[in-house]
Amino acid sequence: MFECALIQGELFRKLIASVQDLVQDGNFMCDANGISLQGMDSSHVALVALALKKEGFVEYRCDRDVTLGINFANLAKMLKCMGAKDRLSIRAQDEGDSASFVFESEDSSRVSNFELKLMQIDQEQLGVPETQYKAVIRMPSSEFQRICKDLSAIGDTVSISVTKEAVKFSVGGDIGSGDMSLRQSESGDVDGDDSEKVMIELEEPVQQNFALRYLNNFTKATALSKTVTLSLGTDMPLVTEYKMDNLGSIRYYLAPKIDE
């Protein structure tokens, strides 16, 4: 028997919205420690890895490892019926062919029950090694979303170059070119809200090119976290990570574009 509950069901709805445009179906691997999901887009250029810890749930029980094969668009149709402040419970039998989703309003005046048919999904999983990155940038997630959205109107490839002073996003296209630089925040602003700062950890300067359409896809997770962390290495996939307090994190990996 697997069951878990979130006080803020809305968080789960945002999680599904953050993955459903990149991968259509996926296996939620549930074990005693939490829920994980990994999915790749069809061209194997981008990968999303979700890691939810049991500590982030108000209730969590997983007697035996359970794999829930889910079509995210179908699940999203059911989650759409959930109230913004509803509590969400998920239940699945060990060998069941469906999973139940229960939404309960704060005052329990409204309770909704949905049963989602599960799928058998044979999914290729990639081994993502823990990597030491040359440059790690933490910045406001809304700022990153805006840069990706605005620059994609000028070019389809963004060059991200990082020095210890600043991170620069550059694009070029038919109409011309442009770049936006964010300077590292002064560490002195002890008053400033940390989530508004730009922090750069640099081992050595890095410059890499990425397709903006994937980055714009990743920024669908902006609602999950006030900050986003970008990790870059020379000729390495970019890691874009949104941490959700004690619930866990959603990480997106994007293969670089290499100049011929």
Binding site: H44, L126, K257, I258, D259
Partner: peptide, 14 residues
């Protein structure tokens, strides 16, 4: 001209 790499060049299938 820059060519789009795939993740399979960096991560191996498990």
């Amino acid at each position: 001209k820059s060519s789009q790499k795939r993740l399979d060049s960096y991560f191996k299938l498990i």
